[in-house]
């Protein structure tokens, strides 16, 4: 006590403890922002269901641009691209196929896709494209149609694996779900265009992505 000069160093152990505790907490609770081509601000709701694994996700941004994403697994994504390439007579090389199987959602026509796949991910964001969905060139419909087929196929494989372990497993959980991620400020007309395509394919059970409501109290 008397010797004040002797203790200029502070014991940092508790601080380090605290800091690492927080680091551990954030590491475990964090889920990283996925590398989406656009930032979409979804509206909030009281819904509390989580996004399933096997989904076809259509993103609609503020200006009404449409993006397509499919998370049925790498093999399923490759098969999907092969089917689309076959239908639209577009050539993809092996590298592009590999790249497609790892990519998140994209917004461009099939004809542009080989070029798009060769780009760096930063460059892709600058491209202001959208998936064609007008009646003469309805590529989105084909993406959804083939995506659904591939999703069902890959879901079935996963279901059979799970059913071997637990016979109570329901097939329904492994079927692809259809998800609309629409910006709150986008006109509903834009979302409706996509919804009509789903309905044309007889896929009527859709899901909207929403963020959890902050203060809203029930009843």
């Amino acid at each position: 006590m008397a010797n004040v000069k002797a203790s200029p160093t502070i014991d940092m152990t508790p601080m380090v403890d605290l800091a690492f505790l927080l680091v551990t907490f954030f590491m475990l609770s964090a889920n990283f922002r996925s590398d989406e081509p656009v930032q979409v601000d979804t509206p909030s709701s009281i819904a509390d269901a989580e996004i399933p694994k096997n989904v076809i996700m259509i993103t609609v941004d503020k200006e009404g641009r449409v993006f397509y994403g499919f998370t049925g697994g790498q093999e399923a994504r490759k098969n999907l691209l092969i089917k689309m390439a076959d239908k639209y007579k577009v050539q993809f090389n092996k590298k592009q196929l590999e790249e497609f199987s790892l990519m998140s959602s994209f917004g461009c026509s099939v004809q542009q896709l080989p070029q798009y796949l060769d780009m760096e991910s930063e460059k892709r964001k600058e491209l202001k494209g959208s998936i064609p969905m007008d009646s003469t060139n309805n590529q989105l419909k084909d993406w959804i149609y083939f995506g659904n087929i591939e999703g069902l196929a890959s879901g079935k494989v996963k279901f059979e694996e799970a059913a071997n372990r637990n016979p109570d497993t329901e097939m329904n959980e492994y079927k692809p779900k259809f998800i609309l991620k629409v910006d709150g400020k986008a006109l509903y007309e834009h979302a409706k265009g996509v919804i009509e395509i789903f309905r044309d394919l007889d896929l009527n059970n859709l899901n909207f992505v929403t963020s959890l409501e902050g203060g809203g109290e029930q009843h």
């Binding site: 989580e50 059970n205 899901n207 959890l212």
Partner: peptide
């Protein structure tokens, strides 16, 4: 980098 609010889905059946 972490995002806290996990996105949720709201199901809606269209006619």
């Amino acid at each position: 980098t972490s995002t806290f609010s996990k996105p949720k889905i709201m199901s809606l059946v269209y006619p």
